[in-house]
């Protein structure tokens, strides 16, 4: 579809296009900078599997590297790069290490990759959690003036949520009826939370604090089965996927 659109045909076609992609990278945890020692170890490795390192992209991790005795200025990233390349590896950058080491690596043309330890740890804790044992199923309609809050889990309502009622969850909210009241999902800040309802006539919807009142909800979606989630910090209200 994109290619057939007029913007990308003939002379107007841009010289390149950027797209995100995922690659598996080998991480080389460097413990010391003794080039001779590195070469010896590499020779051993290559002997075991001769073509194993052919153009293998590697990231040099400096986290476990002992502080160089002669100071940071003595570190020769250029030389390290050439050694690794000689044995078939293709260093794409470094990560961790002191700011001084990182600056030196940049000088040698090795980019510093972002430290993703905290991000990956946070990600792991969310989606890998089993379906929360704290989820609650409400078997009756939620009437005006009633408020239901589910901590650390999803809220499932098998009926309507009336105008003036509030359904709140730390996780997702599923409403198998008309949503006329307020629905607030991910109230503790979970931007991955969703709201699903059989008919959207809500007074207010909110995910992780981003909210919209009924006036701001596109009338095209009113009264229809909809799903609501956050994309780049913006509430997206769309037809329920079947």
């Amino acid at each position: 579809m994109l290619l057939s659109s007029p913007r990308f045909t003939g002379e107007n076609r841009p010289p390149f296009e950027l797209k995100g992609s995922l690659f598996t990278l080998t991480v080389l945890h460097l413990f010391q900078l003794d080039r001779a020692a590195i070469e010896r170890h590499l020779t051993d490795k290559v002997k075991q599997a001769p073509s194993f390192f052919n153009d293998t992209p590697v990231v040099i991790d400096l986290d476990a590297l002992a502080e160089p005795r002669d100071g940071v200025d003595s570190v020769d990233f250029q030389g390290l790069y050439q050694t690794l390349r000689q044995y078939g590896m293709a260093p794409v950058g470094i990560r961790h290490g002191s700011p001084e080491l990182q600056a030196r690596a940049r000088l040698a043309g090795l980019p510093v990759l972002p430290d993703n330890r905290s991000a990956s740890a946070a990600k792991k804790s969310e989606p890998t959690e089993p379906p929360s044992p704290h989820s609650r199923v409400i078997h009756h309609p939620v009437r005006s003036g009633q408020q239901i809050y589910v901590a650390d889990g999803d809220l499932i309502v098998l009926g309507a949520v009336s105008a003036g009622a509030e359904v709140i969850a730390d996780g997702n909210i599923h409403i198998y009826g008309v949503l006329r009241g307020r629905a607030l999902a991910g109230v503790k800040g979970d931007v991955e939370a969703w709201i699903f309802c059989q008919s959207l006539e809500a007074e207010l919807i909110s995910i992780a604090g981003r909210y919209r009142i009924s006036e701001q909800i596109d009338s095209a979606g009113q009264g229809k089965a909809m799903q609501i989630h956050l994309v780049d910090d913006r509430l997206v209200i769309e037809a329920l996927a079947h």
Binding site: H140, P141, R143, S144, G145, Q146, S162, A163, G164, A165
Partner: peptide, 13 residues
Amino acid sequence: VRDSDRILGILAS
């Protein structure tokens, strides 16, 4: 209607 809805909620709880 809204007030009746409220009362129904109170009856149920």
